[in-house]
Every structure is written in structure tokens, then in C-alpha cells.
């Protein structure tokens, strides 16, 4: 069922269309100008030829790509394991911090101390402490440095995620708990069936964002010794006396992050839309 819009409406449509075309043209022009300035500025720099050789050498890149890729596979495995464990740990700590009652005081105090100290402590130091300190104790059955490094990453990110989960738990309105308790649900049941499902949904975007950060921080495990993508690149740099392997590793990390970033954006958008659509 189409009806012809009034002349006034037709004028409005024409005006808006004109503005839209103008915007596109302006954007194209400004992009062209900025791109030209950057290209001329960088390639025209006096040291550009040398930088090109030692950072963007195609031969070196091809030579070390297989090793770096192999190392990257370790990063991917670490990411999956550390992200999963850090989420479980974070959720557990967040729930422990909400417990009320004098019996739980030590638990609360420990959970609070943990989130305060591990968020302040640089990850590099935690990795050193775990990977070199714990084997130094010479205990029987000390796991491999790889596992110790993974544990260091997990406890550090667990502290951040605990705070994200806690914010989510606190954002659920007290009336929801009142409604759950009025039905006879215990505190634990109210938490599990009513509060946590809502809290986790609400903090999904920041959680995923922290996972993106974790994605690149798993590379710090190279400090402890395991040959991941960064370590492999470092070896390549030492052998070829050329920085190109680092650039290769960097590009691979970005490519690895892209799907995760895309998912994060999508979830954030969906959450925002739901918020607007909701009552």
C-alpha cells in the first residue's frame, strides 16, 4: 500500500539525501588527504629504507613464519585454558565476596585481599614469582614452567574478572532477591537461579573485553621460557639480526584478536539494544 508523500515530505527527503551525499564526499576527501600525508611522511623519512629492511623484510618473514605460527598455537591453547579458569576463579571470588555473616569473615577478607593485591601487581612480576620462585622451593611434583606461567596469568586475570562479576552481581536490583526469597528460595538458590544469570548477562561485554586483553597477555609467558609466538619471534630476531619476526608475530596476534573483538562488539551492541527495548 503505497501513497505519494506530500510535497513537503518530498522536499525533506530530497534535502536529507543531498546532505548524505555531501557527507560521503567529505569523508572520502579527508581520508585521501590524511592517507597521503601519512604515506609521504613515513616513506619520505630519511631512515625509511633502513627501517623497511630491518622491520618489513619479506624473505625473513616467510622464513620464520612456520615457527611463529607453531608458537602461536601454544598461545591459543593457553588463551582457552587461562580464560576458562580465570572466569571460574573470578566468579567464585565474586560470590565469596558477597557472603554475609560472621562465619564467612575470613573467606571475605581473603577474597578481598586477593582482588586488591593481584590487580595491583604487574603480571610480569607474578609470572617471574610463579615460574622461578615455585621451582626454587624444590618441592616434589612441581609442574612445568608452562603450567606455572599459565597459573600466574590465571590468578592475575581472575582478580580482574572477579571485580567485573561483582559489579554485575551488585547491579541486580535488591527487589529481585526479595522476590526470590519471598518464594522460599534460600540465599544460595536465589543467587544461583536469579542473581547470577542476570549478572553474567549484564557483564558479558566487559568480560569479553578482558578476554581480548588476556589474548595478548598470554604472550608474556615467553618470559618464563616456553616457546610461544613471541619467543619464536625473539629467536628469529636473534638469528637473522632483523626485527621482521616481531612484526610477523604482531600481525598474527592482531588477526587472532579480530574474531574475539568482533564477537565482543556484537554482544555489546545486542546488550545495548536489549536495554533500550526493555521496559
Amino acid at each position: 500500500m503505497s501513497r505519494t508523500p506530500s510535497t513537503r515530505q518530498q522536499e525533506r527527503i530530497a534535502y536529507r539525501r543531498g546532505r548524505a551525499v555531501r557527507s560521503v564526499l567529505l569523508a572520502a576527501a579527508s581520508t585521501a588527504v590524511v592517507g597521503t600525508v601519512l604515506t609521504v611522511g613515513i616513506t619520505g623519512a630519511p631512515g625509511w629504507e633502513r627501517v623497511k629492511e630491518s622491520f618489513f623484510d619479506p624473505e625473513t618473514a616467510v622464513e620464520y613464519l612456520p615457527e611463529i605460527l607453531q608458537g602461536l598455537w601454544l598461545n591459543v591453547k593457553l588463551l582457552v585454558i587461562c580464560a576458562t579458569l580465570a572466569m571460574v576463579l573470578g566468579l567464585l571470588i565474586a560470590v565469596l565476596r558477597t557472603l554475609r555473616g560472621p562465619v564467612f569473615f575470613p573467606v571475605r577478607a581473603m577474597a578481598t585481599t586477593y582482588t586488591y593485591s593481584l590487580r595491583g601487581l604487574p603480571l610480569i612480576i607474578v609470572i617471574y614469582l610463579f615460574a622461578f620462585g615455585i621451582p626454587g622451593l624444590r618441592l616434589q611434583g612441581t609442574p612445568d614452567v608452562l603450567w606455572l606461567g599459565a597459573a600466574a596469568i590465571t590468578v592475575t586475570y581472575g582478580a580482574y574478572l572477579a571485580e567485573v562479576f561483582r559489579a554485575g552481581i551488585e547491579s541486580v536490583h535488591p527487589s529481585q532477591i526479595a522476590a526470590a526469597r519471598s518464594l522460599g528460595l534460600s540465599y544460595r538458590q536465589a543467587m544461583r537461579h536469579v542473581v547470577l544469570p542476570q549478572a553474567v548477562r549484564r557483564v558479558a561485554p566487559p568480560l569479553l573485553n578482558d578476554t581480548v586483553a588476556l589474548q595478548k597477555d598470554v604472550g608474556l609467558i615467553s618470559l618464563a621460557g616456553p616457546v610461544d609466538a613471541i619467543r619464536a619471534a625473539q629467536i628469529g630476531v636473534a638469528q637473522s639480526a632483523d626485527f621482521t619476526p616481531y612484526v610477523v608475530a604482531g600481525v598474527l596476534f592482531v588477526l587472532l584478536a579480530l574474531p574475539l573483538i568482533a564477537v565482543t562488539d556484537w554482544v555489546t551492541l545486542r546488550a545495548a539494544r536489549r536495554q533500550n527495548a526493555g521496559s
Binding site: 527487589s175 529481585q176 522476590a179 526470590a180 519471598s182 544469570p197 542476570q198
Partner: peptide, 13 residues
Amino acid sequence: IGLVFQSYNLFPH
């Protein structure tokens, strides 16, 4: 004891 609230308080999820 059943309690019904002014703002319904249904669980949105």
C-alpha cells in the same frame, strides 16, 4: 506465605 509486589518483580531472564 506468598508475597506480590507493586513492581511485579518477575525475573526478566
